[in-house]
Design a protein around this nucleic acid. Structure first.
Lengths: 213, 213
DNA sequence: TAGATTGTTAATCGATTAACAATC
DNA sequence: TAGATTGTTAATCGATTAACAATC
């Protein structure tokens, strides 16, 4: 209990460091794919996740999850523990804002449903798109977005609108009470500290690769 | 024989820390958007990029880029310097592997061309898709992929295939001499250390958000 | 000059990892 | 027991930041 890790955490949040949290989904994916055996060693987990074995043991120790010396970690128990920690033990409802190419692609991406995330709403501002079906979800007018959020239809949103619209969309969602945002628009959105945001940008990724390649 | 994640520097002494490199695209975007004035202070850059001003000064100092005390940094000079550092002073040719929803969305994403990345080839294994046009690029049979890479048609690739195909595609590209990979498949691919890879996964992002939200 | 802002130092923070005693 | 593997310590590494002299 003497490992200092208060500084790197999000304000008011419990224990795990950002670095640890970012690795949990990787571990979880592995644990979901495993069919053989019901225990796994930190060595195997580490190799598959591309990290150091000591790092794995420290992460799981921080999680409060115990293994068995000489044996390893229980696969089903660890899987459940990580799911619980990430808050995905039950399905999460997600809205996608922007029904262009990217929004459509994200909405159709089957991997989401498989991991517990249900796309329950898609919004756009373009009358041509409103009313059309993407999968089995109808594209709605973006004016419906705040009300739907406020009434609890969803609590996570993916922003897939053009750069110029992203900040306005983000503010609308925040005002309506959104819990967290994933921003695919190629611009940084600014929101209150209390709302977690992750930004993913294709050209940023390519530019970083340009440096190393 | 893998491990293309974060931490320390990549192959050789490239000079800049990973943290610094990951911030350069943010600075660059700001510098490209600015029209007012021809100098900018570390304070303004920092605020817009969401980092500490001392961090900005340190990054630019590491770049070997000098500002003027009491004045700030030259916008056009800094913009050019970052472009040169990232290796994007000239246009880069990129292939997209997988012409499904995601691959199509990425290919159509205008932000790429605007940032200097030209999608010069799209590959798929599905005969239904081969021959169709996405923008002005024809979808080719994936069997053409290694030859095109070998002949220098492109040197960066975006993997947008299903998880089960990602590792095979990555290996084919590496054998054909690819310089760097951006992997959107929901699985981690393993490549030699010398090839930089970045992995972007939607459900991983959502799972991380689930923890904080 | 007087105010502004850089460039750099030093402290600190956060994260990783080798090593090994504990123990299954 | 003998081998395997955890849990934890301590060292180290990498990155951030406050502070301030230098200087435009």
């Amino acid at each position: 209990m003497d490992r200092a890790q208060d500084g790197g955490n999000v304000a008011g949040m419990s224990g795990l460091s950002r670095a640890t949290v970012s690795r949990l989904p990787q571990y979880l994916r592995l644990l979901e794919d495993i069919e053989t055996g019901d225990t796994i060693s930190s060595d195997l987990l580490a190799e598959a996740a591309g990290v150091n074995a000591a790092n794995v043991r420290r992460d799981l120790s921080d999680l409060g999850f115990q293994g068995t010396r000489g044996v390893g970690y229980s696969v089903p128990n660890l899987r459940d523990r990580i799911r619980r920690e990430l808050g995905i033990e039950k399905r999460r409802k997600v809205a996608i804002v922007g029904a262009g190419n990217l929004g459509t692609a994200l909405a159709r991406y089957g991997g989401l449903a498989k991991r517990g995330f249900d796309v329950v709403a898609i919004y756009d501002i373009d009358q041509e798109r409103i009313g059309s079906l993407i999968g089995d979800v109808k594209v709605q007018d973006i004016s419906e977005m705040p009300g739907d959020c406020g009434s609890g239809l969803y609590d996570m949103a993916i922003i897939a609108v053009p750069a110029r619209a992203a900040q306005t969309v983000a503010e609308g969602l925040v005002d309506a009470g959104i819990s967290s945002l994933l921003n695919f628009a190629p611009v940084r959105v600014s929101v209150p500290d209390a709302i977690p945001v992750r930004q993913v940008d294709l050209s940023t990724e390519l530019q970083i690769l340009s440096y190393y390649g």
